[in-house]
Nucleic acid binder design. Structure first.
Lengths: 204, 204
DNA sequence: GACAATACCAAGCAAGCGCTTGGTTTGTAA
DNA sequence: TTACAAACCAAGCGCTTGCTTGGTATTGTC
């Protein structure tokens, strides 16, 4: 199952907006602006101008500005959880599964959904506590994928550090790549994935 | 040379504000508020109230709100560069030096200067480009400490991944700890340092 | 004890903010 | 063609924002 098919399945279930719909385009622009300027610095007028409508018209699609932020986060998590799940299922063996997870997360951070992923990580505080809780519940599913693989690698002795700690260290490492890694640069995503595996001592 | 002595030397050179001065207290409160609410969400009225003066009086000490943010960042880097330098100098051998760096950075992130360090990492965008450049220059000194040690460990074969990449992965891991690590919890800073060294395959 | 310099207050201005309102255009299906 | 909902516009309200202003205490120095 390729990435496009996964996306289309989610769109069919109305779990994420179609990228070419009015709502989808708004969310894409929102992610870009929120990432570039930050949520607070982005005004509803900026957002409206980016999709070519009046600022007031935004509130026909979303009740509040925060609802836009929340939608960006929720749809991003849903898409990436599905992509991760597929990556894990395809790979054979736990080292390969871990590598697949790392590669998939790096792809989501530095690829097409990169802007939205950066928002998810760095605009967390801008969500109200209630919205945070909702999004957190979705994240748990996502995190469990990692913990399962890391737990098995720990029991087999291939990873000596604590799985929970390793996942958290990896979360930081991988999300931080958004600040320095250039997708078009001389190091590709696969080489970066190798470097991460190397630094974990999982390649000789 | 202990940490207090280092701080006092910097204060004597007017490179950082004394923590008990008016300016110092303002910067401490600013760091706390900027971290808790974010720079944009923190108003000058919030800041003034936190130190017990009127909002207008802030502008006697700083020309603009952004100047406060910049001062928080600049003073934090100056202090931590000095602390890191001392940590590296004291440790014997490159593994020990790396451990000292990791421990020192974790301490600065999760200890007393934690709020300011979080601001440095997560409020970067709120600085104007000119201010960013100034702060970046200070950061280079700081980063060189790491690259020297990692470079030697790489040449000796103890670290197989690229030193630049490892440093960046570590920057992410360590700064991210601010979101989950509890200083008062059952895992201490030293144990966390060990876990990081473990995950790098530098402890057997 | 005179005199700056420093630190602060009280009040408010201009601009920008999220969001609302009442009405018009566009798309869809009978 | 009619009917109706979804999508959008034009205007602006009420509030908050960073910052300014003119004046008053407080502090340090000789």
């Amino acid at each position: 199952m390729n990435q496009d098919a996964i996306l289309q399945a989610l769109v069919a279930d109305k779990l994420v907006s179609a990228p070419d719909s009015a709502r989808g385009r708004l969310l894409t622009e929102a992610a870009r602006l929120f990432r570039d300027r930050g949520y607070e610095r982005t005004t509803v007028r900026d957002l409206a101008a980016a999709v070519g409508i009046q600022s007031g018209s935004l509130f026909h699609h979303f009740r509040t500005k925060e609802a836009i932020l929340k939608a960006v986060m929720v749809e991003t998590i849903r898409l990436n959880t599905a992509l991760m799940q597929a990556a894990v299922d395809e790979a054979q063996g736990d080292r390969a599964k871990l590598r697949a997870l790392i590669h998939a997360e790096l792809e989501s951070i530095n690829g097409l959904t990169g802007e939205a992923m950066a928002v998810l990580v760095y605009e967390w505080r801008s969500l109200s506590p209630e919205a945070q809780e909702e999004v957190l519940a979705l994240r748990d599913i996502y995190e469990q994928l990692w913990l399962d693989v890391l737990g098995r690698l720990h029991r087999s002795g291939e990873v000596t550090a604590d799985p929970f700690v390793v996942r958290r260290l990896l979360t930081g490492s991988l999300s931080w790549t958004v600040t320095w890694f250039q997708s078009g640069g001389k190091m590709g995503l696969s080489e970066l994935t190798d470097q991460v595996m190397l630094s974990l001592g999982l390649i000789d």
